[in-house]
Design a protein around this nucleic acid. Structure first.
Length: 242
DNA sequence: GTAGTGATTGCCT
DNA sequence: GGCAATCACTACG
C-alpha cells in the first residue's frame, strides 16, 4: 500500500490500531545498529499534558555509534553536559536542540556513547493533536499539513509529540509514564528495509558515507527517499532483530 | 516539483 | 564567536 494508490486521508483512516506491549530494558540492551533496525515498525507513545495520547509508528532511524563514529556527538569519548544521556542506561531518552529552535530525539543503546536517532514516524492515533502542535509552532497557518507530513523529519516528530529537553531528556523509556515504545505485530510484516548514508552530517567522508540510516521501503512518511547510495535488506532475513 | 535562504539559541572551542 | 543530526517560506518553472 502506498500513498500513490490512495489519498492521504484514505491511507491514514485505514491504519489499524491494536493492543501493544511496552518494550522493556532487555529490548534496548542491544548494539546500536541492531537497535536502530529493531525500532523500525515499533510504536512510539506519548502522553501530552492535556491527557491526550498520541501514537505513531517509527519508520526511519539512524545509528550514531559513539567513540569511533566521527559524526557522533560522543566521538572520541567526549563527555559534555549535553551528551550525557548517550552514556546512560540503554533506553534513556536523549533530546538536544539544534539550529536554535528545533529538537532532535535519540534513544541510547548498548555501546560506548552510542544512540539511535529517530528521523520519521507514521502517525497512528490523535493526528489532530499532532497537527495542532505543528500549527502552533508555525508562523503562518495558511498551509494545510498532510497527515504524512506531520512527523516526517526529526524536528517535526519532536513538535508533533511535544518532545523537548525540559520534559523528556534523560527519561527512562522503560519506566517513565509519559513516553515509551510499544511492540506491534505489524512490525513483523515489514517487507524491505533501505539502508543509506545519514542525512545532514558533515564529517570525514568514511563516516559520512557509511550506511547507518535505515527506513521502511515504500512507507509514505519517510523524510527523504534515497535513489542511488542505498542497499535493500529483506526484513525477515536481518539477524538479531528484536 | 526543487533551489535558495533566513530563523534562532545554547553549547563548545 | 562559530555553528548545528532542520524546517518553512519564497521564487520559479
Amino acid at each position: 500500500m502506498s500513498i500513490n494508490d490512495q489519498s492521504d486521508s484514505e491511507y491514514f483512516s485505514s491504519n489499524p490500531v491494536q493492543y501493544r506491549k511496552r518494550l522493556d530494558g532487555q529490548f534496548y540492551e542491544t548494539q546500536c545498529e541492531e537497535l536502530a533496525l529493531s525500532l523500525l515498525g515499533k510504536v512510539l507513545v506519548r502522553h501530552l499534558d492535556d491527557g491526550t495520547i498520541v501514537r505513531g509508528r517509527i519508520v526511519e532511524t539512524e545509528s550514531y555509534l559513539g567513540h569511533e563514529d566521527a559524526a557522533s556527538i560522543s566521538y572520541k569519548g567526549k563527555v559534555t553536559p549535553r551528551n550525557e544521556p548517550v552514556f546512560m542506561k540503554p533506553g534513556t531518552a536523549f533530546v538536544y536542540m539544534t539550529y536554535g529552535m528545533y529538537h532532535c530525539f535519540n534513544i541510547s543503546s548498548k555501546g560506548d556513547g552510542a544512540s539511535v536517532f529517530l528521523r520519521s514516524i507514521e502517525p497512528l492515533d490523535n493526528l489532530n493533536a499532532m497537527a495542532s502542535l505543528r500549527k502552533q509552532f508555525k508562523k503562518s497557518t495558511k498551509t494545510v499539513i498532510a497527515n504524512k507530513d506531520l512527523c516526517n523529519g526529526p524536528a517535526k516528530l519532536c513538535i508533533s509529540f511535544a518532545i523537548d529537553i525540559k520534559s523528556c531528556n534523560k527519561q527512562d523509556l522503560t519506566t517513565w509514564d509519559r513516553m515509551w515504545v510499544e511492540e506491534d505485530e505489524n512490525s513483523r510484516l515489514i517487507d524491505t528495509i533501505v539502508c543509506s548514508p545519514r542525512i545532514g552530517i558533515k564529517c570525514e567522508k568514511k563516516w559520512q558515507d557509511k550506511f547507518l540510516r535505515y527506513y521502511i521501503r515504500d512507507n509514505p512518511c519517510v523524510s527523504k527517499i534515497e535513489k542511488t547510495k542505498m542497499k535493500e535488506l529483506k526484513y525477515s532475513q536481518i539477524e538479531n532483530i528484536k
